[in-house]
Simulated scan of single mutants.
Amino acid sequence: MADFRKLRVMISSRCASTVRRGDSRVSMTVVRTRLKRELEAESLCGERLFEVWISDNAPDQSQGDLETAWEKSLEEVRKADIVLVLYTGEAGWAPARGLGVCHAEFQQAWNDGPARLKVVRIGDVGTAPKDAAELKRDQAFQAYFDDLNPTSPAASDVDAIVARSREALREAVAGLVKLGGREARKGRFAYGAPLDWSRLDFGHRKKAMEDALGGGLAEFGAVESSGGWLWPLGETSLLTICHGLPGGFGVAAAREMVGQPFLHDHLFLARALGEREAPAGPLHLVACLKGITESQAMRQLGFPDATIVAAPFGVYVSDPVQKIQMIFLANCRDLTTTRNALCRLAEWLNATGEAANLARRALGRRRVVQAILDVQGD
């Protein structure tokens, strides 16, 4: 039997700040210590599940070696499977003119992958008087945090903090298991469904890829419309056009089957307008049989002056002037890998807050395309 490795949990927070416990107040060190004890007592099928790390903040600082303590904290963030941030709005101590350690830990965890970052917002926090440098670090952390605005429950006393933290850890474990399960189901491309798709000619493979995308969008609440899907993003109904690129991006015959579909946005929108109120968009969602680079996505757009982001699902392309948006999903070899890429896109949109930006740009694209339709009507 393989060795069982516990999940590493890193708890990031201020130590000296105080919170309510009944009629008295205790330091966050007491909360962190209780969380560590309770989490490490949890078991799964007879085995302890978590290994929890909390910093020995006071000894680190008393030794005067802040740089070493700083690097140790960031190393623990990188090693952790899950990072639990107990957010009080305080950036924490810092080496000379650096970010506060809590700010740096949060930033490291976010940049490494928001899926393993969980946050509990702490209210009614008691703090010691601070100098101007500490206040400036706190303001920088709060501005950074508010800009990202991660989804997070709130708590104001010890029992509530522990309860919300346990719920956040449970949600994180479930999410990571689902993500790992989807990755495991990918399998090899020379067997099963990927092999079946490889046997298809370009036309039938393109159709299979587009059907897989449509089925995946339906799982997110999208409704089929003429020539596309109406994908609900918040309050916005987004006209999403599915495309399949049935060969490698370097194969001209496959690439030309997708071309520059945004040149026909007025036709896509006109068909949708015949059925219902004007949706936002269009957005073009392209399933790519193999990988795709930023340079390849840029060439497909046709000009370099655009927002081009390489992400876990593939490449996201947005033109800030014409509001053209294309999303390329990489390695869509069969139904499972295509749905997996779409799920990773949805997770990225939610984790980064980019869903709201995508919807806003889609509303702008509708106005651009509507103007084209109005001119044609004249």
Rank of each mutant, 00 (worst) to 15 (best):
A69E: 00
K79A: 11
N57H: 08
W53L: 13
W53I: 10
L74H: 07
P59R: 15
L49F: 10
K79C: 02
A69V: 01
T68F: 04
A69F: 04
D56L: 13
L49N: 04
F50M: 05
F50G: 10
E51Q: 13
C45G: 13
L44S: 07
L74D: 02
G46I: 00
N57E: 09
G46P: 02
E51K: 10
V77T: 09
Q63N: 15
G46T: 04
T68E: 12
E67I: 15
P59C: 09
E67A: 10
S55N: 11
Q63F: 11
P59K: 10
E67C: 04
L74E: 01
L74G: 05
E75F: 09
K72L: 14
E76L: 07
E67Q: 14
E47C: 10
A58R: 13
A58P: 15
Q63T: 09
L74Y: 00
Q61F: 06
E76V: 03
F50Y: 14
F50V: 04
L74F: 01
S43E: 11
A80H: 00
E51D: 14
L44W: 08
K72I: 06
E67L: 12
Q61R: 15
V77F: 10
G46S: 05
D65K: 12
D60G: 02
G46K: 12
E47M: 15
R48G: 02
S55L: 03
W70N: 12
I54L: 10
E71G: 00
D60H: 08
Q61A: 14
S62Q: 13
K72R: 12
E71N: 03
Q61M: 13
V77W: 06
L44P: 00
T68D: 09
G64A: 04
E67V: 11
L49V: 13
S43L: 01
E51P: 03
N57P: 01
I54G: 07
Q63G: 15
D56K: 15
E76G: 07
D56Y: 14
G46N: 13
E76F: 02
L74K: 07
E51A: 08
S73P: 01
A58T: 11
A58M: 09
E76P: 02
F50P: 06
L49Y: 07
E67N: 10
A58F: 11
W53C: 02
D65G: 11
V52M: 08
W70T: 05
P59S: 09
F50I: 03
L66Q: 03
E47T: 04
L49W: 05
G46F: 05
S55K: 04
E71C: 01
L66D: 06
W53P: 01
E76A: 12
V77Y: 07
W70H: 13
L44R: 09
L66C: 02
Q63M: 10
G46Y: 00
K79T: 04
R48P: 11
Q61W: 00
E71Y: 00
R78L: 06
R48S: 02
E71Q: 10
E71F: 03
